[in-house]
Simulated scan of single mutants.
Amino acid sequence: MRTALVIGTGLIGTSAALALAGRGVAVHLRDHDPARARTAAALGAGTDEAPEGPVDLVLVAVPPAHVAATLAEAITAGLGRGYLDVASVKGGPKRELEALGLDLTAYLGTHPMSGKERSGPLAATADLFEGRPWVLTPTRDTDTEVLNLALELVALCRAVPVVMDADAHDRAVALVSHTPQLVSSMVAARLEEADETAVRLCGQGIRDVTRIAASDPRMWVEILSANPGPVADVLSGVAADLDETVRALRALQSADEDKRRDGASGVEDVLRRGNAGRSRVPGKHGAAPTVYETVAVLISDQPGELARIFADAGRAGVNIEDVRIEHATGQQAGLVQLMVEPSAAPLLGKALQDRGWSLRTT
């Protein structure tokens, strides 16, 4: 791949353009808002000047509702040898293109499973896709050259290719991406009118659950409008669990011992099923989930403290597998939770204590 045209210079389009440009591909940028294309170009993602002729790859990074029309225009104009899109839904755009009667041998639908709460070119980074799954949905009609271009794009962005059927992809993202967004927003919405004293009690748990609730509502309306059926199916199952859990909690208020026992059993059931589902989420580098030991250390909110604690862990010969920081409300301190292999936890704890760190139980 020597040349590419990226249509749509939001977070995903600009990030892909930055990755391609950084690896020697001549990237041309186009957006319905020329100012966004100029911004992406100023960031080093390519040039906002039109290509002189057909490019090797046309990458369409526009909202799902506009994917089919944008691709149809590009294909009809012969802008490239291969055409990909990066929309978060795949079945709908594919069917829209088929209904237009276009030759789709040069088209392949894709979806990088990566993003941020922020949007727009200024949020873009060249490493956004590194190590992340990038779904490819080829059909029997997809030209081999186009599939190779898609695989090259994924490799240049240092992502991991995953081949799926388009409709299977849409059902999957309804479960692992679209429904979590809505549930996160619903929980966060409970905070809008909450008493200030309750909000001040927010800890890491509520921060984890509501992190993605900060996402752009307009963007998510477009995404959910393109995949409403599968999302509604998943939410229907969640709603059934909610109804059962509400009944179980009400039973716990009963004066009848048998009802309280049934209520406790119902709550435990949903919690255990949650444990089982969480255990299936892939762990580090996509491997099977690993249970790590947590070493919690009190840390002050001062420059260089995180670097110092990581350096001390390195001197002890311990690899930090994951890290979380829980901030103390109203204080210039917090807990840094270092996740390590269980066998390494005692060694790390002693080494950090020897270097003056204060450990806490979690």
Rank of each mutant, 00 (worst) to 15 (best):
E192W: 11
A194P: 08
A198D: 12
V199R: 15
I206C: 07
D208L: 03
V209D: 07
V209F: 08
T210Y: 03
R211A: 03
R211T: 01
I212K: 14
S215A: 15
D216T: 11
P217D: 08
M219V: 03
M219H: 10
W220H: 06
V221W: 04
I223A: 11
A226M: 06
P228S: 09
G229V: 09
P230C: 09
P230M: 09
P230E: 08
D233Y: 03
D233F: 01
L235Y: 10
S236Q: 14
G237N: 14
A240L: 12
A240T: 10
D241P: 04
D243P: 03
V246M: 12
V246L: 14
V246R: 15
V246D: 11
R247I: 03
A248D: 04
L249Y: 03
R250T: 07
L252E: 09
S254D: 05
D256C: 04
D256F: 06
D258W: 02
D258R: 15
K259V: 08
K259E: 15
G263N: 13
A264M: 14
S265A: 15
G266R: 13
G266Y: 14
E268M: 13
D269W: 08
V270C: 12
R272K: 13
R273F: 03
N275T: 07
N275Q: 12
R278E: 10
S279V: 02
R280F: 01
K284Q: 14
H285E: 11
G286W: 10
G286I: 12
G286M: 11
T290S: 14
V291N: 07
Y292E: 09
E293P: 01
E293H: 09
T294R: 13
T294P: 01
V295I: 06
V297N: 00
L298V: 02
L298F: 04
I299Q: 04
I299K: 00
D301Q: 07
Q302H: 10
P303H: 13
E305Q: 14
L306C: 05
F310K: 03
D312Y: 05
R315T: 09
A316H: 02
A316M: 04
A316D: 05
E321W: 02
E321L: 04
E321I: 01
E321Q: 12
R324K: 15
G330D: 05
Q331I: 00
A333M: 10
L335E: 05
L338E: 00
